[in-house]
Design a protein around this nucleic acid. Structure first.
Lengths: 412, 412
DNA sequence: GGCTATTTGTTCAGCGATTGAATTATTTGG
DNA sequence: CCAAATAATTCAATCGCTGAACAAATAGCC
């Protein structure tokens, strides 16, 4: 992970253009229908003249294109709709997880233009070797992107663990990684993307954070606030506030798996007692449902559980209800604290939503003081298992849209 | 409470000036020693010429004055230090609580220039009457401020309850208020402050939020992230992220009192079980220490408790340890979720910090995964019981400093 | 004491980006 | 076919920042 761009300090004469380019591009990105220059002018308060000039820059920089079929009504010269370009910069998304590598390419508009998943047990593989394999896949993705007219402008990598500001994976328990300096390891390998001013070549971030960003990207586009919970072996959460990921003082926010739900309950590997993970983690649910994780491949666990629940297995239903209750207690804490109106169940939880939702809502309505006035929505994630990779690629795209000047300034 | 200013949309030609005025004034406000124009120029990246022009505007607008005794070293023309003016705009802070009304005036530099506390049991008093008394006190404060050369530019009111965007107190249980439209009630009374562009005449907000802001103001000034916990009859928290109060989707964040700490524990008035308030609220601590709240005036409760703890009362020490443990469990949840590095104990908790801190730190180090790498500081609040009123006044000052153009544009 | 180096703050012509009005382009409706 | 309406562009004017030159004020040195 990397420090966020941060609020603008002083506004120099030149920054003015940069800011307005970002404002106009941002409007085009979040609009639900292709806006015309005139609409952009009234929305932003800028003059039509200014908007025209800005849009021209964006078009020549391959960030925006004109969409001819613009819906009309009434008299007057027809507007030319503006949409994000499908042949400009794109983001490269990478993911290393316990049992697969994933690579994807997402264009400015958020469309997934390329996607590869390489299944393999990564636990016995050294970090250097895992990254080598990933770079190989990335090379193919880059060629594929070029064939589609896209330029990879930056990359982001999701890992299931804690990452510090320098991109070092401090701890990824399920992967067996500790203090892995990813940027240094990648430095010796072929570059993943073009060099673009203002876009770091590689950003390493927590998988749960990136999944939340992926969900944000998949949503309607406007600013949103929600809690995205990834239920895997561990339980991680990404907190999106007003359309931005909240990372905390050191980037280690969202460790919802170790929120205490039964303060004097089961001992947890973290040293605490009664952590959520002990009641709603994948292992706990499977054990309660009478399944042995060793019996089935890791990625089929939630599929199997869904089958059992659908056929009405008493054990499975009870296990899910208990897990949902524990989850609800933790979520109630979060909602009390942050006053969020949406909770997204992602990762392995997504297909289990029909069974998890009722007990979660139950606990929320019981424990959240303001629930009566402001209902909380609990819904499954829009993206599937590849949310982290898509979110990683999307984070690159977000960066370009937030500061298009860097891309426009590139030579060529 | 009111919607936060929000990020600038488009940057018009004129906004450029506004932004740079804010940048320069902000630097002056947060500097630890009076900066010179030259220092400001290098810090902000603006030219000395530009900074001079901006500073001139700020000085003629009575926001900044030159501090003659500027500390020097080396050769060269001596710099003239710039400090926030003590005779310009000021904020009016108001507080209505269960057993007192408070009014204070805070100037740009954060100094408290006037302070009145009016003790009275407010529970039997109607909201309209309470506000009438408050306006009377505010009138005196306004005269006092004028005598000191200050102009009241806006007011904020803290109440112990939930406030919606329109300033209506939806629920203040300990005050017995429900759906009280404060702005409408004040509309019939004499105005509290001058009318300044961009500053709402009255902002109503939760007491815990404002206390957190007060703490932020009392701190070193730089951006900070912390959790401020007000331990009163109820337990409220204010979350400060990067120097800004986090309010949540509807402004109802920080309801830490109803975080479940013992999921199947004591029933709470909110309908849940095992809420923090049941273990670390004022009533719970007093009861556990063998004190009856009815026996002593509300505001002396924590004083009495401190005495008992200092004399080594076994019951009191046990009560505080238990409360601290419960508090620690809740705080651990918050830190796991938000990765904050500082927890401030405010309100009634502040004097009890010596006894509460050990169990709180204990639970944090046990339950927070990242605690080993990133220690969490637990400290008492810098401000006392008047934190909310001071924070309220400070919130007005913050607003002026964040957007000085509004004040500068006023006629006169 | 006088000179130089050094740093601060101001003045002023120049420039870049936005502005606002006028102009051109393109369609609907009568 | 013409008038009304809306969209987009052109262009001189304007506003605020820039950069360099200049004036001001002090310390150190001979």
């Amino acid at each position: 992970m990397t420090p966020t761009p941060g609020p603008v300090g002083a506004v120099r004469q030149g920054s003015l253009r940069e800011l307005n380019l970002a404002v106009v591009l941002g409007r085009i990105a979040t609009a639900d229908r292709p806006p015309s220059r005139a609409v952009l002018a009234t929305e932003t308060g800028l003059t039509r003249a200014t908007v025209s000039a800005l849009v021209e820059d964006l078009i020549t920089g391959r960030l925006v294109t004109e969409a001819e079929p613009a819906p009309r009504s009434g008299a007057g010269r027809p507007a030319r709709g503006l949409v994000l370009a499908g042949n400009g910069p794109a983001g490269l998304g990478l993911e290393i997880n316990v049992d697969y590598l994933a690579v994807c390419v997402v264009d400015l508009a958020g469309r997934v233009r390329h996607h590869t998943v390489h299944r393999a047990d990564l636990r016995p593989v050294s970090p250097a070797d895992a990254l080598r394999r990933l770079v190989e896949l990335a090379g193919q993705a880059r060629a594929e992107a070029a064939a589609q007219g896209l330029t990879l402008a930056g990359a982001a990598l999701g890992v299931p663990g804690l990452v510090d500001d320098a991109g070092t994976v401090r701890l990824a328990p399920n992967l067996g990684w500790r203090d892995v300096p990813v940027p240094a390891l990648l430095a010796g390998l072929p570059p993943l993307t073009e060099r673009v001013d203002g876009i770091p070549p590689i950003v390493v971030d927590n998988e749960a954070n990136l999944s939340a960003l992926g969900e944000l990207h998949a949503g309607s586009g406007g600013p949103a606030s929600f809690l995205h919970i990834s239920g895997e072996v561990g339980i991680g959460a990404g907190i999106v506030l007003d359309g931005d990921l909240f990372r905390g003082a050191r980037g280690w926010s969202g460790e919802i798996g170790h929120i205490p739900v039964h303060s004097a309950g089961r001992a947890c590997s973290c040293g605490g007692r009664g952590c959520l993970e002990q009641y709603a983690g994948q292992e706990a649910i499977l054990a309660a449902a009478g399944l042995d994780r060793a019996d089935l491949p890791a990625d089929t666990a939630s599929v199997r559980l869904t089958e059992l629940a659908e056929t009405g297995s008493v054990d499975a239903l009870r296990a899910l209800r208990e897990a949902g209750t524990a989850l609800g207690i933790a979520v109630a804490s979060v909602v009390n604290l942050l006053d969020l109106d949406t909770v997204v169940l992602g990762g392995g939880y997504a297909p289990l939503t029909p069974w998890l939702r009722p007990p979660v809502l139950d606990e929320i309505s019981r424990r959240v003081l303001t629930a009566a006035w402001s209902p909380v929505t609990v819904r499954p994630a829009a993206l599937g298992a590849d949310a982290a990779a898509v979110g990683a690629a999307g984070s690159v795209v977000r960066r370009i849209i937030a500061r298009p000047a860097g891309w426009l300034a590139r030579t060529g």
